[in-house]
Nucleic acid binder design. Structure first.
Length: 271
DNA sequence: CACGGATCCTGATGGC
DNA sequence: TGCCATCAGGATCCGT
């Protein structure tokens, strides 16, 4: 469920508080998507140096190696000095000198994976095929145009696949395409440079605004301090099937693409 | 090799 | 403590 903005908001909400903390113990619940990939005892005594983000992954830099954390569809992270005992869906807890970092994930599509370093096979298996960061300076129009020219799939699915640009999930894909005036079913290769330019802007602005607002688009999202977003960013089309478009009042439609729901305004968004 | 479908898992919701 | 189908913010694997 968490897309780039929610992961970034989560990161910011605990990165400074966990930096420098020494790992005291680990507590594992049910299996997540992948095994941890190391002996939990080998992490004890190490310091957490920093928390970075790559796509929808949180990267916890340790003195020797890093932990890659993914929230999957239903994951959320809490970091607090005063966390009670692990609950039913708490499947990973890192007890440190500065608090407990805990991953709650009912569906267990998330993961915590150890890698000896960022370029190791373990890390590259997860990070190696990721596209560019949409909010970074590498997300340039020329590169985006070139990448999309090679893709025959519908633009919505290209955005979701994350190998061209990362971080755009099911909600923000619909929102960005609405902002850009592009029908989600349009094949990427068919988009003119001008329309790709609109999409490039739309992706950046929709994600940047969501980060500023604290991940507010998601109904039940809260950061690692348990604070919710401000709910000031209302979805233009996502979840609004049958309701009037906020721009032209045409009824918003929903379709299925690759077993995911897509929402769009048939009038504002051209094929 | 790009594409599209099946798949992992649990919970919420709504119809009957 | 009703049962069943559908849907949910992700991403990998596999057959074509």
């Amino acid at each position: 469920m968490p897309e780039l903005p929610e992961v970034e908001v989560t990161r910011r909400s605990f990165a400074d508080r966990i930096a420098g903390a020494r790992i005291a113990s680990l507590e594992l619940g049910k299996p997540l998507r992948w095994p941890l990939g190391c002996d939990p005892a080998s992490l004890v005594g190490q310091r957490v140096l920093a928390v970075r983000r790559r796509g929808k992954y949180l990267l916890l830099d340790l003195e020797h190696g890093l932990l890659l954390l993914h929230l999957g569809m239903s994951g959320s992270v809490m970091f607090s000095a005063h966390l009670g005992p692990a609950g039913k869906h708490d499947h990973f807890s890192l007890h440190t000198s500065q608090g407990v970092l805990r991953l709650n994930d009912p569906r267990r599509f998330g993961a915590v994976v150890f890698a000896p370093n960022e370029h190791s096979p373990q890390a590259q298996k997860l990070l190696g095929k990721l596209g560019v960061e949409p909010l970074g300076e590498d997300f340039v129009l020329d590169g985006f145009v070139r990448a999309l020219k090679q893709r025959k799939a519908p633009i919505k699915q290209v955005l979701l696949s994350g190998d061209t640009v990362v971080g755009v999930g099911n909600i923000y894909a619909s929102e960005a395409l609405f902002l850009a005036g592009i029908r989600p079913t349009t094949r990427a290769v068919r988009l003119s440079r001008a329309r790709v330019a609109r999409l490039h802007d739309a992706i950046r602005s929709v994600l940047a605004r969501a980060v500023e607002q604290g991940g507010s688009t998601l109904r039940d999202f809260s950061n690692a301090q348990g604070e919710s977003g401000h709910f000031q960013l209302e979805a233009a089309v996502y979840g609004r099937a049958g309701l009037p478009c906020r721009v032209c009042s045409t009824l918003v439609r929903t379709i299925r693409q690759g077993q995911r729901s897509t929402f769009f305004c048939p009038a504002c968004q051209k094929p």
